[in-house]
Design a protein around this nucleic acid. Structure first.
Length: 426
RNA sequence: AGAGAGAUGGCUGAGUGGUUGAAAGCGGCGGUCUUGAAAACCGUUGAUGCCUCUGGUAUCCGGGGGUUCGAAUCCCUCUCUCUCUGCCA
């Protein structure tokens, strides 16, 4: 969530930034007027409470001295009633402010390209080249079926469409990718590996800013009010919820593999083929808690960590910087990494790396003790970044297609061979 | 799932209606001593909001509600933890 103080003191700035995200800035005016009202009542009720505290102390003293205090008690009874009335009113206003605030996205960082939608994203890097095939390429569904390594029909039988079933060397290849990613991040990139719960509480979803805004997009277990995670970002972020971290412990970097679950409500009929849009997929997540001064540097490093994996795999990819109109709710700056699909003849998103600055840490109350120049300390919100490093399903599309041979067999990239223990799937 | 116990500051742990934002200890930070360190001693050490902002004030003792002039303390409720029993991997 945004800082109410920032809205109060720099309303025009906030509106300008939100307009870049196609947001209705009338919400800000609504918050401002509620805030004025809130402060007015807050001042009144605090003055009354001050009176109550003072007189209550006097009453205590009089009681001790066995002096009759009935007049003061009667007087305070009235004050108490007024306090209660104001407190109720205050609570009502605060919950109105929150319900608006919870639906306002993060402000885009300076320098993020301005644009209305995905068409105005900016390609900033392209790596590798398209291969030339001397035969007609098969798509990943055909390849998966031909080699009996992916069984989308039976996945559908088990759970419904969008729940893939990996078989044999397909399952092994998936496992190899995950292990390769985790090993690289822990051994070379300085991440601490975690294995987290995949069902999380409503409080955890709120802290990660997924609820209330995206509640409909997630699987929910009603009996226990638990949500299946759409990304490991949620449990990893919550590792430090309500904590104050020492400055010298930052940055804290975690990586973790989980299954991810998304209802993808509202996208029926779009990209239904195979892995293109699924309800359950596998992902190794990168997460970073750091100081505000370093977060944009950390963002570039994380992007590099994700790209490094694709380069090791020899997958043709590009990096795009999302424009203001296409960024996710919590992000101030975001890169997507896309891999090339020969069969679909288009780029597919395999990773997204975002700097969410203090947008989530404010709601999650994740802070650190900042040491000031005079030696004193100050608590400040940490900056938080998340990124996929990487999600496997769309990568699998690119990988299978790009490494296919004329007979439909698949060559295993060099860096995975020590994991798969086979060189080819045929 | 049933029975019982509990939740207090970075940690341990006092506190059962009136200067208790909270004793004590540990830890942290600063100092004295020391060539330096340890020990000892002294001091210091929570968060958040608002305001007329080198200060004032309000709020916070798991969450929420209630009783009362006044609640960490009493009542209700929810959540979580621990112990025992049951059930299941």
């Amino acid at each position: 969530m945004l800082d109410i103080k920032l809205i109060r003191e720099n309303a025009d700035f906030v509106k300008t930034k939100l307009a870049l995200r196609n947001e209705d800035t009338a919400k800000i005016d609504e918050i401002l007027s509620l805030d004025v009202n809130r402060l007015e009542i807050l001042h009144k009720v605090e003055a009354l409470k001050e009176t109550r505290n003072k007189v209550s102390a006097e009453i205590a003293k009089m009681k001790k001295e066995k002096v009759d205090a009935e007049d003061k008690i009667a007087e305070m009874k009235k004050v108490g009633d007024d306090i209660k009335a104001y407190d109720d009113e205050l609570r009502g206003i605060e919950s109105k402010i929150e319900s608006i605030l919870y639906h306002i996205p993060a402000l885009p960082a300076d320098g993020v390209p301005e644009g209305k939608d995905a068409s105005q994203n900016v390609e900033i890097k392209i790596w590798g080249e398209k291969k030339n095939f001397s035969f007609e390429v098969k798509d990943h569904v055909q390849l998966g079926k031909h080699l009996d390594i992916l069984d989308f029909e039976r996945g559908t039988k088990i759970s419904g469409s969008g729940f893939p079933l990996y078989k044999g060397k397909g399952a092994t290849l998936e496992r190899a990718l995950i292990n390769f990613f985790l090993d690289t991040h822990t051994n070379q990139n300085g991440y601490n590996e975690v294995m987290t719960p995949v069902l999380v509480s409503r409080a955890s979803m709120e802290a990660a800013e997924k609820v209330p805004k995206f509640e409909e997009d997630m699987y929910h277990m009603q009996a226990d009010d638990l949500f299946a995670i759409p990304t490991a970002e949620v449990p990893i972020l919550n590792i430090h919820r309500d904590e104050i971290i020492k400055q010298d412990e930052l940055p804290i970097k975690y990586c973790g593999f989980t299954n991810c679950f998304r209802r993808e409500a509202g996208s029926y009929g779009k990209d239904t083929k195979g892995f293109l849009r699924v309800h359950q997929f596998n992902k190794v997540e990168l997460f970073n808690f750091c100081t505000p001064e370093t977060s944009y540097d950390e963002l570039e490093k994380m992007l590099g960590h994700a790209c490094g994996l694709l380069e090791a795999l020899g997958v043709h990819y590009r990096v795009i910087e999302l424009c203001t109109g296409d960024m996710g709710f919590s992000a101030s700056k975001c890169y997507d990494i896309e891999v090339w699909s020969y069969a679909e003849d288009k780029w597919l998103e395999a990773s997204s790396v975002s700097n969410c600055t203090d947008f989530q840490s404010r709601r999650a109350q994740i802070r650190y003790k900042k040491v000031l120049e005079n030696g004193k300390t100050k608590t400040e919100l940490v900056h938080m970044l998340n990124g996929s490093g990487l999600a496997t399903s769309r990568l699998m599309v690119a990988l299978l297609e790009a490494n296919q041979n004329a007979d439909g067999s698949i060559n295993i990239p060099q860096c995975l061979k020590s994991y798969t223990k086979f060189d080819i799937i045929e």
